[in-house]
Amino acid sequence: MTERQEQHYVCISCPIGCPLRLVHEGDQIIEIEGQECNRGAKYARQEFTDPRRTFSTTVPITGAVYGRLPVKLSAPVPRQAIPAAMAAIRLLCAEAPVRLGQVLLRDVAGVAGVDVVACRTMDRVMIAPS
């Protein structure tokens, strides 16, 4: 019989940041407590089985009011995939106009269904600032 153990997490699903305690025996989750809402339980379960993260960054853009276009992942990727995702995004380059939500890269770092999307609309401007 595997021993009962606990894991502590801080829920990051919202700004409250509930301290969570997850009790498990091997892979088996026994109990989760500390959450203020059920997203917390979901988060602890996810962290325990398959921790995922998302992030945002920028890619260069030409012909827009600023030189960078903010982008984000459309959904979280496994935590270990962040460096690969970042490396893939680093190769991107956009050209104005770009629409909010426009997909710039599909299945980033080989994670099916996770895209790199534009976080804002950037119109084409006549004179790009130097």
């Binding site: 998302t54 903010p70 984000k72 909010l100 976080c119």
Partner: peptide, 18 residues
């Protein structure tokens, strides 16, 4: 550009530019 905006107002997590 990070996410963390709009959870109260829009009930979803947006980046600042969004």
């Amino acid at each position: 550009i990070h996410a963390g905006f709009g959870l109260h107002h829009f009930r979803e997590e947006l980046t600042g530019p969004e």
